[in-house]
Structure formats: structure tokens, C-alpha cells
Amino acid sequence: MADLLFNLFAVLTLVAAAGVVINRNAVNAAMCLLLSLVGVAGLFVVLDAYLLAFLLLLVYAGAIVALFLFIVMLLDAKGDVPAPVRKIPLLARIMALVLVIAGISSFFARGQLPSPDPATTPALGASLKLYAYQLFTVYLLPVQILGFLLLIAMIGVIVLSKKFEGLDDIK
């Protein structure tokens, strides 16, 4: 069952991600991003990180993609013009192809990490208590800094979205 779900979500993630790159229309690209994020959340569920899957959907799919769609529609962004085909030297093409093939083949030949059996390893990400414990003990300072980061981002966005006339206004 985990096998089937893993394959399903992996394919969904990668195909939708390719859709983000391929789609000319920015709205369709945002929708593909949403699908890809759902796939990633599914992978998190297969990895027993339920809270993270939920947060990913909430923060990314709920807030970030909605914000993207909002801006795309606000700016009325038209589709892309196709990228001009540039002349790439033959040598560079061959070198790139050889590098890609060498990388992939070395990954399959010797890039295998020892994979512990998930059944014997405790799924620490499944329990909420451990997150709270870690966030309020070991990672307390980073959490505080993140709070400040969000505050600074909020102030920055307010400043950026103020309308100013030319450079005189900044002085």
C-alpha cells in the first residue's frame, strides 16, 4: 500500500512540476504548482510526517498559491513569449550531454545510500509532542529569530506597497 501511494504521489509531484515549467499561461502554472504541492504533501504522509503534510497544504497551497493567483490576476500577466533559440556551440552540447549521462550513471552505479528499514526505525515525525519539545528547547532561538523575520517581512511589504512618486519621496 505504501509502495502504491509513494509511486502515485511521486509521479503526481514530478508531472505537475513539469507542468509549471511547460505551461505558457501563468494561471495554469500556478494550478500545476498547487497539484505538485499536493503530491509533496502526500509524500510527507507516506513518510509519517502528518503535521508537516498538513502545514505544507495550509501554508503553501492555502496561502502562497492563493497569493500567487491573486497577483497573477491583479497584474493580468499574459503568457510567455517563447525563449529565442540561441546557438549553442556543438562542443558545449556534447560536454553537457556527457556530464548528464555520467552523473545519472554514477548515481545508479554507486550513489546508493544504505536505506534503513522504515518499519524498524521509529517514526518521530508522527507525534506532535516531539515537535513542540524540539521547538521550545533546542530550537528556541531560531524560533524567536523567525518571529522577527516575519515581523520584518511584514514591515517590508507595507513599505514596498506604499505608493511613492519618483526618487524624491524616498529622501
Binding site: A49, G125, Y139
Partner: peptide, 15 residues
Amino acid sequence: SRFNGTMDGNVFVFF
């Protein structure tokens, strides 16, 4: 995090 039985990777995803 899942395969090594640690918690740090999961917390980093938060950040």
C-alpha cells in the same frame, strides 16, 4: 529524518 529516526530534519522543514 524518517529513515534515520531523528527529529532535526522535520523541525528544519518548519523553518
